[in-house]
Simulated scan of single mutants.
Amino acid sequence: MFLQVIQNFWSSTGYVALTWQHLVMIAIACFFLYLAIVKQYEPLLLLPISFGMLLTNIPLGGLMEYPVYEIGADGLPHMTQLGGVLYYLYQGVKLGIFPPLIFLGVGAMTDFGPLIANPRSLLLGAAAQFGIFTTFIGAVALGFTGQEAASIGIIGGADGPTAIFLTSKLAPHLLGPIAVAAYSYMALVPVIQPPIMKALTTKEERMIKMEQLRPVTKIEKILFPILVTVLGALLLPSATGLLGMLMLGNLFRESGVVDRIFKTAQNELINIVTIFLGITVGATTSADKFLKAQTIQIIALGMLAFAVGTAAGTIFGKIMSKMTGGRVNPLIGSAGVSAVPMAARVAQVVGQKENPSNFLLMHAMGPNVAGVIGSAIAAGVLLSIFG
Protein backbone atom coordinates (compact mmCIF):
# COMPACT_ATOMS: atom_id res chain seq x y z
CA MET A 1 0.00 0.00 0.00
CA PHE A 2 2.77 2.42 1.00
CA LEU A 3 4.78 1.51 -2.09
CA GLN A 4 1.74 2.19 -4.30
CA VAL A 5 1.33 5.63 -2.73
CA ILE A 6 4.99 6.41 -3.44
CA GLN A 7 4.63 5.23 -7.04
CA ASN A 8 1.48 7.30 -7.53
CA PHE A 9 3.20 10.36 -6.10
CA TRP A 10 6.27 9.86 -8.31
CA SER A 11 4.16 9.47 -11.43
CA SER A 12 2.48 12.81 -10.68
CA THR A 13 5.75 14.74 -10.49
CA GLY A 14 7.28 16.68 -13.31
CA TYR A 15 10.45 14.60 -13.18
CA VAL A 16 8.66 11.73 -14.94
CA ALA A 17 7.79 13.89 -17.96
CA LEU A 18 11.07 15.84 -18.01
CA THR A 19 12.85 15.71 -21.40
CA TRP A 20 16.11 17.10 -22.69
CA GLN A 21 14.12 19.80 -24.49
CA HIS A 22 12.70 20.97 -21.17
CA LEU A 23 16.19 21.02 -19.66
CA VAL A 24 17.52 23.12 -22.55
CA MET A 25 14.70 25.65 -22.14
CA ILE A 26 15.20 25.79 -18.37
CA ALA A 27 18.90 26.47 -18.98
CA ILE A 28 18.04 29.25 -21.45
CA ALA A 29 15.60 30.74 -18.92
CA CYS A 30 18.29 30.69 -16.23
CA PHE A 31 20.73 32.39 -18.63
CA PHE A 32 18.25 35.20 -19.24
CA LEU A 33 17.66 35.47 -15.49
CA TYR A 34 21.43 35.87 -15.11
CA LEU A 35 21.46 38.67 -17.70
CA ALA A 36 18.54 40.40 -15.95
CA ILE A 37 19.78 40.10 -12.37
CA VAL A 38 23.58 40.08 -12.60
CA LYS A 39 24.18 42.09 -15.77
CA GLN A 40 21.02 44.20 -15.27
CA TYR A 41 20.13 44.08 -18.97
CA GLU A 42 16.58 45.50 -19.19
CA PRO A 43 15.63 43.69 -15.93
CA LEU A 44 12.10 45.11 -15.70
CA LEU A 45 11.16 43.11 -18.78
CA LEU A 46 13.78 40.40 -19.09
CA LEU A 47 13.23 39.06 -15.56
CA PRO A 48 9.47 38.36 -15.86
CA ILE A 49 9.90 37.05 -19.42
CA SER A 50 12.65 34.62 -18.41
CA PHE A 51 10.71 33.46 -15.35
CA GLY A 52 7.63 32.89 -17.50
CA MET A 53 9.88 30.83 -19.77
CA LEU A 54 10.99 28.84 -16.74
CA LEU A 55 7.44 28.24 -15.54
CA THR A 56 6.04 27.08 -18.88
CA ASN A 57 8.81 24.49 -19.28
CA ILE A 58 8.09 22.77 -15.97
CA PRO A 59 6.35 19.57 -17.13
CA LEU A 60 2.75 19.04 -15.95
CA GLY A 61 2.60 22.57 -14.48
CA GLY A 62 -0.31 23.38 -16.76
CA LEU A 63 -0.04 27.14 -16.35
CA MET A 64 -0.74 27.72 -20.05
CA GLU A 65 -3.24 24.89 -20.52
CA TYR A 66 -6.39 25.68 -22.49
CA PRO A 67 -9.75 25.20 -20.77
CA VAL A 68 -11.62 22.06 -21.81
CA TYR A 69 -15.21 22.20 -23.03
CA GLU A 70 -17.70 19.44 -23.75
CA ILE A 71 -21.07 19.62 -25.46
CA GLY A 72 -23.80 18.93 -22.90
CA ALA A 73 -27.22 17.37 -23.32
CA ASP A 74 -28.62 20.83 -24.03
CA GLY A 75 -26.34 21.11 -27.06
CA LEU A 76 -24.28 23.89 -25.49
CA PRO A 77 -20.57 23.79 -24.58
CA HIS A 78 -19.83 23.42 -20.87
CA MET A 79 -16.41 23.90 -19.28
CA THR A 80 -15.19 20.68 -17.73
CA GLN A 81 -11.69 21.86 -16.87
CA LEU A 82 -10.35 25.33 -16.15
CA GLY A 83 -7.39 26.67 -18.08
CA GLY A 84 -4.09 27.57 -16.43
CA VAL A 85 -3.74 30.94 -14.72
CA LEU A 86 -1.25 32.22 -17.28
CA TYR A 87 -3.59 31.21 -20.11
CA TYR A 88 -6.16 33.70 -18.83
CA LEU A 89 -3.58 36.44 -18.28
CA TYR A 90 -2.27 35.78 -21.79
CA GLN A 91 -5.59 36.93 -23.23
CA GLY A 92 -4.41 40.48 -22.53
CA VAL A 93 -1.64 39.86 -25.07
CA LYS A 94 -3.73 37.86 -27.50
CA LEU A 95 -6.50 40.46 -27.58
CA GLY A 96 -4.05 43.35 -27.94
CA ILE A 97 -4.80 44.91 -24.55
CA PHE A 98 -1.43 44.96 -22.79
CA PRO A 99 0.78 46.65 -25.46
CA PRO A 100 -1.39 49.80 -25.75
CA LEU A 101 -1.48 50.06 -21.95
CA ILE A 102 2.32 49.87 -21.92
CA PHE A 103 2.34 52.68 -24.49
CA LEU A 104 0.06 54.72 -22.21
CA GLY A 105 2.68 54.46 -19.47
CA VAL A 106 5.55 55.16 -21.87
CA GLY A 107 3.78 58.30 -23.06
CA ALA A 108 3.33 59.45 -19.47
CA MET A 109 7.05 59.02 -18.82
CA THR A 110 8.29 60.60 -22.06
CA ASP A 111 9.19 64.21 -22.69
CA PHE A 112 8.59 65.04 -26.35
CA GLY A 113 10.22 68.45 -25.86
CA PRO A 114 13.50 67.56 -27.67
CA LEU A 115 11.53 66.35 -30.69
CA ILE A 116 9.34 69.46 -30.74
CA ALA A 117 12.40 71.70 -30.36
CA ASN A 118 14.15 69.97 -33.26
CA PRO A 119 11.53 68.57 -35.66
CA ARG A 120 14.26 67.42 -38.04
CA SER A 121 15.04 64.62 -35.60
CA LEU A 122 11.78 63.04 -36.74
CA LEU A 123 13.60 62.17 -39.97
CA LEU A 124 16.28 60.34 -37.99
CA GLY A 125 13.61 58.31 -36.20
CA ALA A 126 12.05 57.48 -39.56
CA ALA A 127 15.40 56.48 -41.10
CA ALA A 128 16.06 54.02 -38.28
CA GLN A 129 12.87 52.13 -39.21
CA PHE A 130 14.65 51.08 -42.43
CA GLY A 131 15.76 47.95 -40.61
CA ILE A 132 12.15 46.80 -40.31
CA PHE A 133 11.49 46.76 -44.02
CA THR A 134 14.93 45.42 -44.98
CA THR A 135 14.45 42.46 -42.66
CA PHE A 136 10.93 41.95 -43.96
CA ILE A 137 12.39 41.37 -47.42
CA GLY A 138 15.02 39.01 -46.00
CA ALA A 139 12.41 37.00 -44.10
CA VAL A 140 10.25 36.61 -47.20
CA ALA A 141 13.33 35.42 -49.10
CA LEU A 142 13.86 32.72 -46.45
CA GLY A 143 10.33 31.40 -46.98
CA PHE A 144 8.36 33.13 -44.24
CA THR A 145 4.85 34.30 -45.11
CA GLY A 146 4.08 37.99 -45.42
CA GLN A 147 2.45 38.04 -41.97
CA GLU A 148 5.40 36.22 -40.39
CA ALA A 149 7.96 38.41 -42.17
CA ALA A 150 6.19 41.57 -41.00
CA SER A 151 6.22 40.32 -37.41
CA ILE A 152 9.92 39.46 -37.61
CA GLY A 153 10.85 42.75 -39.26
CA ILE A 154 9.23 44.83 -36.51
CA ILE A 155 11.99 43.61 -34.15
CA GLY A 156 14.11 46.27 -35.87
CA GLY A 157 11.98 48.95 -34.24
CA ALA A 158 13.54 47.92 -30.88
CA ASP A 159 10.15 48.39 -29.29
CA GLY A 160 8.94 45.30 -27.43
CA PRO A 161 5.26 46.24 -26.99
CA THR A 162 4.98 47.10 -30.69
CA ALA A 163 6.57 43.77 -31.67
CA ILE A 164 4.19 41.89 -29.38
CA PHE A 165 1.16 43.85 -30.60
CA LEU A 166 1.87 43.23 -34.29
CA THR A 167 2.87 39.58 -33.82
CA SER A 168 -0.25 38.81 -31.77
CA LYS A 169 -2.30 40.11 -34.71
CA LEU A 170 -0.38 38.61 -37.63
CA ALA A 171 1.62 35.58 -36.44
CA PRO A 172 0.71 34.59 -32.86
CA HIS A 173 2.48 31.23 -33.26
CA LEU A 174 5.79 33.14 -33.46
CA LEU A 175 5.14 35.34 -30.43
CA GLY A 176 7.60 33.54 -28.14
CA PRO A 177 10.77 33.75 -30.24
CA ILE A 178 9.95 37.23 -31.59
CA ALA A 179 9.32 38.64 -28.11
CA VAL A 180 12.48 37.05 -26.73
CA ALA A 181 14.52 38.38 -29.67
CA ALA A 182 13.02 41.88 -29.40
CA TYR A 183 13.60 42.25 -25.68
CA SER A 184 17.02 40.59 -25.79
CA TYR A 185 18.27 43.07 -28.38
CA MET A 186 16.70 45.96 -26.46
CA ALA A 187 18.64 44.78 -23.41
CA LEU A 188 21.85 44.50 -25.43
CA VAL A 189 21.68 48.01 -26.92
CA PRO A 190 24.87 49.13 -25.08
CA VAL A 191 26.71 46.11 -26.52
CA ILE A 192 25.38 46.02 -30.09
CA GLN A 193 25.19 49.69 -31.07
CA PRO A 194 28.62 51.24 -30.25
CA PRO A 195 30.67 49.15 -32.75
CA ILE A 196 28.21 50.01 -35.55
CA MET A 197 28.21 53.69 -34.62
CA LYS A 198 32.00 53.88 -34.50
CA ALA A 199 32.42 51.99 -37.78
CA LEU A 200 30.19 54.45 -39.63
CA THR A 201 31.49 57.73 -38.19
CA THR A 202 34.83 59.47 -37.95
CA LYS A 203 36.39 60.68 -34.72
CA GLU A 204 35.79 64.27 -35.84
CA GLU A 205 32.10 63.57 -36.40
CA ARG A 206 31.75 61.92 -33.00
CA MET A 207 33.31 64.99 -31.37
CA ILE A 208 30.79 67.44 -32.84
CA LYS A 209 29.14 69.56 -30.13
CA MET A 210 25.56 70.56 -30.81
CA GLU A 211 23.90 73.82 -29.88
CA GLN A 212 21.53 73.90 -26.95
CA LEU A 213 17.90 73.17 -27.88
CA ARG A 214 15.42 76.01 -27.77
CA PRO A 215 12.89 76.12 -24.90
CA VAL A 216 9.55 74.49 -25.73
CA THR A 217 6.38 76.19 -24.55
CA LYS A 218 3.64 74.46 -22.59
CA ILE A 219 1.08 75.06 -25.34
CA GLU A 220 3.37 73.31 -27.85
CA LYS A 221 3.68 70.30 -25.56
CA ILE A 222 -0.10 70.11 -25.13
CA LEU A 223 -0.91 70.51 -28.82
CA PHE A 224 1.71 67.99 -29.97
CA PRO A 225 0.04 64.75 -28.75
CA ILE A 226 -3.36 65.94 -30.00
CA LEU A 227 -2.08 66.79 -33.49
CA VAL A 228 -0.01 63.59 -33.77
CA THR A 229 -3.03 61.50 -32.78
CA VAL A 230 -5.34 63.14 -35.31
CA LEU A 231 -2.88 63.17 -38.20
CA GLY A 232 -1.44 59.73 -37.48
CA ALA A 233 -4.77 58.00 -36.87
CA LEU A 234 -6.27 59.48 -40.04
CA LEU A 235 -3.28 58.29 -42.06
CA LEU A 236 -3.11 54.82 -40.47
CA PRO A 237 -6.25 53.89 -38.54
CA SER A 238 -4.69 50.49 -37.70
CA ALA A 239 -2.03 52.29 -35.62
CA THR A 240 -4.59 54.24 -33.58
CA GLY A 241 -4.45 51.87 -30.60
CA LEU A 242 -0.70 52.21 -30.03
CA LEU A 243 -0.26 55.79 -31.20
CA GLY A 244 -3.37 57.08 -29.45
CA MET A 245 -2.50 55.54 -26.09
CA LEU A 246 1.09 56.82 -26.34
CA MET A 247 -0.17 60.34 -26.95
CA LEU A 248 -2.87 60.11 -24.28
CA GLY A 249 -0.23 59.22 -21.71
CA ASN A 250 1.84 62.18 -22.84
CA LEU A 251 -1.19 64.48 -22.64
CA PHE A 252 -1.70 63.30 -19.04
CA ARG A 253 1.85 64.44 -18.41
CA GLU A 254 1.81 67.79 -20.17
CA SER A 255 -1.71 69.01 -19.36
CA GLY A 256 -0.90 69.35 -15.66
CA VAL A 257 -4.55 68.85 -14.66
CA VAL A 258 -4.70 65.09 -14.03
CA ASP A 259 -1.84 64.55 -11.63
CA ARG A 260 -3.35 61.44 -10.00
CA ILE A 261 -3.91 59.44 -13.18
CA PHE A 262 -0.65 60.74 -14.66
CA LYS A 263 1.25 59.26 -11.72
CA THR A 264 -0.79 56.04 -11.93
CA ALA A 265 -0.07 55.66 -15.65
CA GLN A 266 3.69 56.11 -15.26
CA ASN A 267 3.99 54.00 -12.13
CA GLU A 268 1.39 51.50 -10.89
CA LEU A 269 -0.37 50.82 -14.20
CA ILE A 270 2.70 50.29 -16.37
CA ASN A 271 4.37 48.21 -13.64
CA ILE A 272 1.40 45.86 -13.26
CA VAL A 273 0.92 45.47 -17.01
CA THR A 274 4.67 44.89 -17.49
CA ILE A 275 4.54 41.98 -15.03
CA PHE A 276 1.54 40.40 -16.77
CA LEU A 277 2.94 41.04 -20.24
CA GLY A 278 6.41 39.74 -19.46
CA ILE A 279 5.45 36.55 -17.67
CA THR A 280 2.78 35.54 -20.20
CA VAL A 281 5.00 36.27 -23.21
CA GLY A 282 7.72 34.19 -21.59
CA ALA A 283 5.17 31.44 -21.04
CA THR A 284 4.65 31.11 -24.80
CA THR A 285 8.20 29.76 -25.19
CA SER A 286 7.43 26.12 -24.47
CA ALA A 287 10.08 23.66 -25.64
CA ASP A 288 7.92 22.21 -28.42
CA LYS A 289 7.37 25.67 -29.95
CA PHE A 290 10.71 27.35 -29.25
CA LEU A 291 13.32 24.70 -30.04
CA LYS A 292 13.05 24.85 -33.81
CA ALA A 293 15.37 25.87 -36.63
CA GLN A 294 12.87 28.62 -37.36
CA THR A 295 13.66 30.21 -33.98
CA ILE A 296 17.34 30.53 -34.89
CA GLN A 297 16.35 32.22 -38.16
CA ILE A 298 14.11 34.66 -36.28
CA ILE A 299 16.85 35.56 -33.79
CA ALA A 300 19.36 36.06 -36.63
CA LEU A 301 16.91 38.19 -38.61
CA GLY A 302 16.14 40.19 -35.48
CA MET A 303 19.83 41.00 -35.10
CA LEU A 304 19.91 42.05 -38.77
CA ALA A 305 16.88 44.28 -38.26
CA PHE A 306 18.39 45.97 -35.24
CA ALA A 307 21.82 46.40 -36.85
CA VAL A 308 20.39 47.82 -40.09
CA GLY A 309 18.14 50.20 -38.13
CA THR A 310 21.11 51.48 -36.12
CA ALA A 311 23.23 51.83 -39.25
CA ALA A 312 20.50 53.60 -41.24
CA GLY A 313 19.89 56.11 -38.46
CA THR A 314 23.61 56.80 -38.12
CA ILE A 315 24.10 57.18 -41.89
CA PHE A 316 21.17 59.58 -42.13
CA GLY A 317 22.72 61.46 -39.20
CA LYS A 318 25.91 61.81 -41.28
CA ILE A 319 23.89 63.14 -44.20
CA MET A 320 22.16 65.63 -41.93
CA SER A 321 25.52 66.64 -40.48
CA LYS A 322 26.85 67.40 -43.98
CA MET A 323 23.73 69.31 -44.96
CA THR A 324 23.89 71.50 -41.84
CA GLY A 325 27.59 72.24 -42.15
CA GLY A 326 28.61 70.01 -39.25
CA ARG A 327 26.06 71.20 -36.70
CA VAL A 328 24.54 67.73 -36.17
CA ASN A 329 26.44 64.92 -34.48
CA PRO A 330 25.58 61.79 -36.51
CA LEU A 331 25.66 59.63 -33.38
CA ILE A 332 22.20 60.86 -32.42
CA GLY A 333 20.76 59.11 -35.49
CA SER A 334 21.44 55.71 -33.90
CA ALA A 335 18.93 56.57 -31.16
CA GLY A 336 16.13 56.48 -33.73
CA VAL A 337 15.67 52.74 -33.15
CA SER A 338 13.50 53.56 -30.12
CA ALA A 339 14.58 51.58 -27.01
CA VAL A 340 13.80 54.66 -24.89
CA PRO A 341 15.90 55.99 -23.22
CA MET A 342 18.77 53.49 -23.46
CA ALA A 343 19.63 54.21 -27.10
CA ALA A 344 19.87 57.94 -26.33
CA ARG A 345 22.17 57.17 -23.40
CA VAL A 346 24.41 55.08 -25.65
CA ALA A 347 24.75 58.02 -28.07
CA GLN A 348 25.67 60.21 -25.10
CA VAL A 349 28.28 57.75 -23.81
CA VAL A 350 29.93 57.18 -27.20
CA GLY A 351 30.05 60.91 -27.93
CA GLN A 352 31.43 61.81 -24.50
CA LYS A 353 34.24 59.27 -24.81
CA GLU A 354 35.53 61.24 -27.78
CA ASN A 355 34.83 64.65 -26.26
CA PRO A 356 34.26 64.82 -22.48
CA SER A 357 32.49 68.18 -22.83
CA ASN A 358 29.98 66.75 -25.28
CA PHE A 359 26.40 66.40 -24.03
CA LEU A 360 24.23 64.68 -26.63
CA LEU A 361 21.55 63.13 -24.40
CA MET A 362 18.77 65.66 -24.97
CA HIS A 363 19.60 65.91 -28.68
CA ALA A 364 19.46 62.10 -28.96
CA MET A 365 16.12 61.99 -27.15
CA GLY A 366 14.52 63.66 -30.18
CA PRO A 367 15.24 60.77 -32.58
CA ASN A 368 14.67 58.35 -29.71
CA VAL A 369 11.06 59.35 -29.07
CA ALA A 370 10.58 59.80 -32.83
CA GLY A 371 11.57 56.15 -33.10
CA VAL A 372 8.74 55.18 -30.75
CA ILE A 373 6.27 57.01 -32.98
CA GLY A 374 7.96 55.59 -36.08
CA SER A 375 7.76 51.99 -34.89
CA ALA A 376 4.04 52.41 -34.11
CA ILE A 377 3.45 53.86 -37.58
CA ALA A 378 5.51 51.07 -39.20
CA ALA A 379 3.40 48.52 -37.33
CA GLY A 380 0.29 50.26 -38.59
CA VAL A 381 1.54 50.12 -42.19
CA LEU A 382 2.31 46.39 -41.92
CA LEU A 383 -0.97 45.67 -40.18
CA SER A 384 -2.95 47.55 -42.81
CA ILE A 385 -1.23 45.53 -45.57
CA PHE A 386 -1.22 42.06 -44.01
CA GLY A 387 -3.88 42.25 -41.31
Rank of each mutant, 00 (worst) to 15 (best):
L101R: 02
G113R: 11
G105N: 00
F112M: 10
N57F: 04
P43T: 02
P100E: 02
A108W: 04
R120C: 00
P119W: 05
I132L: 06
M53F: 01
Y34R: 12
V85S: 10
P100H: 01
M53V: 06
L123R: 12
T110N: 04
G14W: 03
L18I: 14
Y15W: 15
M25N: 07
L124W: 11
V24G: 00
P77R: 03
I116G: 00
L95V: 11
A36R: 04
Q40Y: 05
T19K: 10
D111I: 03
L115S: 02
S121R: 07
L124M: 14
I58G: 03
G52F: 03
M64C: 04
L23P: 08
G72I: 10
A27G: 13
E42M: 03
G131L: 07
P99S: 08
G92S: 08
I97P: 06
L63K: 02
A108N: 04
L44R: 06
L18T: 14
A117C: 02
F32I: 10
G61D: 08
F130D: 05
S50M: 06
L82A: 15
L76T: 13
F103Y: 15
I37G: 05
F51R: 00
Y87M: 06
Y15Q: 13
F31T: 12
Y41K: 12
I97K: 04
I58S: 02
G84H: 01
P100R: 06
Y69L: 12
V93F: 01
M64W: 01
L23N: 11
M64H: 03
E70N: 13
Y15S: 13
G131Q: 08
L18F: 14
T110H: 02
Y41T: 03
P48V: 04
P119H: 08
I132E: 03
S12F: 05
P77Y: 11
S11N: 15
P99W: 10
Y87C: 01
A36D: 05
S121C: 11
I37K: 01
V85L: 14
L60P: 04
V16R: 13
L101Q: 03
L33E: 12
R120D: 02
I58F: 09
G14Y: 10
Q129H: 09
M79W: 00
L101H: 05
L123M: 11
L122W: 14
H78C: 09
Q21A: 14
T80N: 09
L46P: 01
V38T: 10
L124F: 12
A73F: 11
E65M: 12
L122V: 12
I97M: 09
M64Q: 01
D111Y: 00
D111F: 03
I116P: 06
F9P: 09
G14K: 07
L122T: 13
T19Q: 12
A17E: 13
R120H: 06
R120S: 11
L47A: 15
F51M: 08
G125V: 11
A127R: 08
P67R: 08
I28H: 00
F133M: 08
L104F: 12
L63A: 10
L123E: 10
N8R: 14
Q40R: 15
G61F: 15
I116D: 00
A29H: 06
A36F: 00
Y90S: 14
N8G: 15
G75F: 12
A128W: 09
I37N: 02
L54K: 00
